[in-house]
Design a binder for these strands. Structure first.
Lengths: 270, 270
DNA sequence: GAGTGGTCTAGACCACCTT
DNA sequence: AGGTGGTCTAGACCACTCA
């Protein structure tokens, strides 16, 4: 396997499986090197120019292969630094109240949090609607970056009502916010409403993740409520799309009707 | 707004917001045309060569703008046919037992299903493990294509145990499978286990969706169980990534412990 | 300061969809 | 048959990261 570094342009030969585009043969070759252990998780790939192997391969073709692998979640890039093999994704259950720090640890990985912003700020329209306050009313606003094994994987913006948690910013915010709310304010989560969709990271999120703007990502918007139906937390997370898999496990009340729709009503919220 | 079709190469002028790459200015221009209604949902974009406007713009640059918009979910392509404005996504709740036909209709859209394959086939390894049978044991296997408003949006592979639903293939399979299982066999779903992750569509799924292989997609794997814990359905869906948003709403049992983890245990299942 | 990826031009040929 | 996107080459310059 490691002999694949021979100088001859292995990919100028007819494609292994016959009639596929050139860039897919290159992709296949890199996949083989990843699967063989030649390029372990986190390893840096050879530079694009090195991958050209000197022989009649345009850099654009190499890059097409790289983009394909990025879309598949097998490699990622750090902006202007290089291409790296993606680590295994972590399993993320947005319906759990256990926080990031908890379940990343549970899966044998090392979580870390950096608080980028923590302030009392005027509510933007989306948050104002969720909290049922006027646009511009003061809300605690946090912006945090979370990492797994040293790799930044998500940026999140959180809003919390000062009415529910006065003085929140006095506490250390790099850990579990949910835990602080519970322990210090006696507020606990009884309901989670979660929306998720694939996206492209915009400049702001991307730069905080050392990614290129336009990198494929996943948005997770979570609104959590307490037993009284008050909004506890409004959280918007931007993930690198290769960093996680979503896992949800739901039990349905046994006596629900035929076309009933517990636990949720799936209302469009555009 | 509609005057933007002037012959002068509008994008050779300095970018609107100053110092951004050229392809992003092109992107912004197309976004404006979409938002202004000049290019409504479903409309076909001008061809890549037409978008070059004759003046010093390489097609590759146009394509970069198009790829960016595709990653954002704003446009999509039909392989070798052209680029089209993406319709609004539908809201998908994988924890509901209501089927595709139901909630697409609820959202004022027109669902359709084409059954591509319906047969009794040997269980592949993944399905065999889920059903707890030997690899190669007979399972009903369905492959269906689902469309919204005439646009194919997902391919799904379903496996059902013949022990639970003997003679299943005699029924019309273009509707709700869950409903058939309930009505004809008295089997109803008490639990849904769902995993989701972004992916790139492979050749098989892509061609059935008239998409290019490598198009960004979303995989949804759903295992549903009845009250006795038997597997009712094992379902693997490949979605166009711009066609849906995931929405989950979960209520937590009020008396659960601090670090307990209902309703699921978020175990890694690689 | 050397090397990396990011952006960009200007061609070309092909397979395939559409009409 | 004509037009579309898909693939590909062979350059070039720039902004940035990293040592």
């Amino acid at each position: 396997m490691a002999a694949a570094r021979a100088q001859t342009a292995w990919w100028t030969q007819p494609a292994a499986l016959g009639d596929q585009p050139h860039y897919l043969s290159i992709r296949d070759h890199i996949v083989r090197r990843i699967q063989s252990g030649d390029l372990p998780a986190g390893a840096k790939l050879p530079s694009e120019r090195q991958l050209q192997t000197g022989a009649g391969i345009a850099r654009g073709t190499i890059r097409e292969a790289l983009f394909q692998l990025e879309a598949e979640g097998q490699i990622y890039r750090r902006d202007r630094s290089g291409w790296y093999v993606s680590p295994a994704p972590i399993i993320y259950d947005p319906t759990r109240w256990a926080g990031f720090m908890t379940y990343v640890s549970e899966q044998g990985r090392i979580p870390a949090t950096t608080t980028l912003v923590a302030e009392l700020a005027p509510a933007p329209p989306a948050a104002a609607e969720v909290f049922g306050v006027e646009v511009g009313a003061p809300l605690y606003a946090l912006r945090r970056r979370r990492s797994i094994d040293g790799r930044p994987v998500l940026i999140e913006d959180i809003q919390v009502s000062p009415a529910l948690a006065p003085g929140l910013l006095r506490f250390p915010l790099d850990g579990s916010l949910t835990q602080i709310l519970k322990r210090e304010y006696g507020v606990s989560v009884a309901r989670n409403r979660v929306d998720m969709w694939p996206c492209a990271l915009t400049k702001a999120e991307a730069s905080a993740l050392a990614a290129k703007p336009g990198t494929p990502g996943l948005v997770v918007v979570r609104t959590s409520f307490d037993a009284a139906g008050r909004v506890v937390e409004y959280d918007r997370e931007y993930w690198r799309h290769d960093a996680m898999r979503i896992h949800v496990d739901t039990r349905v009340p046994p006596n629900a009707g035929d076309d009933a729709q517990p636990p949720s009503a799936a209302r469009p919220r555009p």
